[in-house]
Write a protein that binds this DNA or RNA. Sequence first.
DNA 1: ATGTCCCAACTTTTGGGA
Length: 259
Amino acid sequence: MKLVTWNVNSLTARWERVEEWVQRNEPDVLCLQETKQDDAKFPFEGFAALGYEAVHHGEGRWNGVAIASRVGIDEVRRGFGTKEDADGARMIAAVCGGVEVVCCYVPNGRALDDPFYVKKLAWLDALAADVGHVDADRALAVVGDFNVAPADLDVWDPAALEGSTHVTPPERDRVAALCALGLVDVIRSTHGDEQLFTWWDYRNGAFHRGFGMRIDLVLCSARILDGVERAYVDREARKGQKPSDHAPVVVDFKLTAPR
DNA sequence: ATGTCCCAACTTTTGGGA
């Protein structure tokens, strides 16, 4: 199964790029964040023409998450059913081809002294509560834009980010807490100490200067990790005309039998 | 210190957010 997460920064603005990327890369399951559409505007027909069923948790101007699948979509959930759902349309989950997929757009946090930073931490706590215990026979992938760089290796210059969100111990502790439940950061676990980024600011020529962060993650259960054949960031998708500021993260795996 | 992009609207310019 080829599972992909991609923050597209408006699916309206990005549709041609997404369509082309899907045709070229043929993912089985595509998780999208920041669709920035309401459900009426979401391109259900466009995905159907490509051979995908899609589900969307839309909002309008901000946020919005979706899952497109060509291996089935069942047991769809939109939000946690907790007060954190008031922070926007940021989570959609479904079972696709026997895999539990949780697609997340974690609140940015804005600044350390901003109320949204506290909401970001609470949202990550709600996600951990929603995930629950990850036992050995569970096939689960929690993916998306976490707006957290798990380690200093995951940012171009830790010193430049002092006092900013995305790198603070409380944020990183939340990602570590998800891993403590039984999830593994697939890109990190398959790439040793290689520095890889998934997001580069549009400003400052950041992409070409290598000023990026790895904030888009695929966290998966041991059962998924067992079958991983390839995991990578598609930097090419950040190039060219009208790119998103995020690159897709791709994990290709064979679903193994329960342990 | 902030050089871009995207969206909405009291919409053709501005402000919020990332």
